[in-house]
Write a protein that binds this DNA or RNA. Structure first.
Lengths: 204, 204
DNA sequence: TGACAATGAATGAACGTTCATTCATTGTCG
DNA sequence: CGACAATGAATGAACGTTCATTCATTGTCA
């Protein structure tokens, strides 16, 4: 039988809160244990060391991204796929937690080749998925532009990353709903720009 | 007569290298002093503490951004302004150094309100400048889209930030020239999307 | 009782910061 | 000029603290 609580998950939940609050390296193992309500030593029963905790969180992030991609894939229209991807990090309990974590993850990737490999892998998989999504979409039959699906995907991901980066500048007073509305607006703006048909554009 | 070397600058040059290599908080004062070829104690003659070093670097970044904005403002066409802004961080000796620094700066902003204020300030000033640039540009008289200058500026900055973030994932083997070419391509792609006139678009 | 979960005091390395000390340079006086 | 005093840039060992990690001990069930 499984234990009443999944310790690994419990520790990771505590860790992401701490990491978002203070960053990877300013978070001490004591911070994590306190947040999780357990002792320091216990963390070492489930993770070899601090790096392993960071690594496990990155893996978690990878599977979360995959889940979002799957949801986006099943959306009826391309616009809705876009909206799902842009607001994915706003649906969770606290958006700025995830944003701060991801920015930190990229910062870590800048100097830790192992993390960089993982993030590149996540990004590549997600981008392939979106490229595919775009290529198959009916919106692409009569584009007003001459951009290839892959180029569009790159642009979309750049905007998404850029918006995520902007998110960490917002004071905490901004609610999750406000954040979501803001991201949605950008997604729709981008969509109009990318996929509005010529006739629609002419009378806009 | 001035001393042969400007110590403050010397320290800041060493610091940005260390920060890009290891991040703000994983860089020790000893790292900086070693990189600068001076003793630890001497740093404290020129900076009150480690935070002051980080602060001074952020200030430096602010004035660099202002300089880039000024250059962009004086470019003959809007496309060239865009190109200047997208490649600004590639012109320096080592692009990924600056990229890593900026990503770290945002990560720091996520949890240090003082840094967040500064970054928000930098961003707002730069975006106002670009909004103005767009509003005055001849390219805006017959837009194919219905986006306001400010919305365009937001989009452009999001893409620029997103590309910068992507930069830190690239292995060091990529040369500055390759990086520059990549950024230029994205800038031009974005420009085509935003400012290509209807007639041009129709025959593209 | 035995097996394992959980604790938290202990350890030692590394950190930011301080400060007594050194010494090349500059200023001063005879 | 030469001898000596004064300066302050520069040093790096030392301090107090924090941290990741370990492990002897205790608690908890079957």
């Amino acid at each position: 039988m499984e234990p009443a609580v999944d310790r690994r998950t419990q520790i990771l939940e505590a860790a992401i809160l701490c990491f978002a609050r203070k960053g990877f390296h300013e978070t001490s193992m004591h911070d994590i244990s306190a947040e999780a309500g357990i002792s320091v030593g216990l963390i070492y029963r489930y993770f070899e060391n601090k790096e392993a905790v960071i690594g496990a969180m990155a893996d978690r992030h990878k599977s979360e991204i995959h889940a979002v991609l799957e949801r986006a894939r099943q959306a009826p229209t391309l616009l809705e796929s876009l909206e799902i991807m842009f607001t994915a990090h706003c649906c969770e309990n606290s958006p700025q937690v995830l944003s701060a974590f991801v920015v930190d993850l990229y910062a870590e990737a800048a100097r830790n080749p192992q993390v960089a490999d993982l993030v590149r892998d996540i990004l590549q998989t997600a981008m392939n998925g979106v490229t595919d999504l775009i290529a198959r979409s009916p919106e692409m039959v009569n584009p007003t532009h001459d951009l290839k699906p892959q180029e569009l995907a790159e642009l979309i991901f750049a905007v998404a990353r850029g918006m995520l980066m902007r998110d960490v500048l917002q004071p905490q007073e901004m609610t999750a709903a406000e954040r979501r509305a803001r991201q949605l607006e950008v997604a729709r703006r981008l969509w109009r720009l990318l996929f509005k048909t010529e006739s629609e554009a002419a009378y806009a």
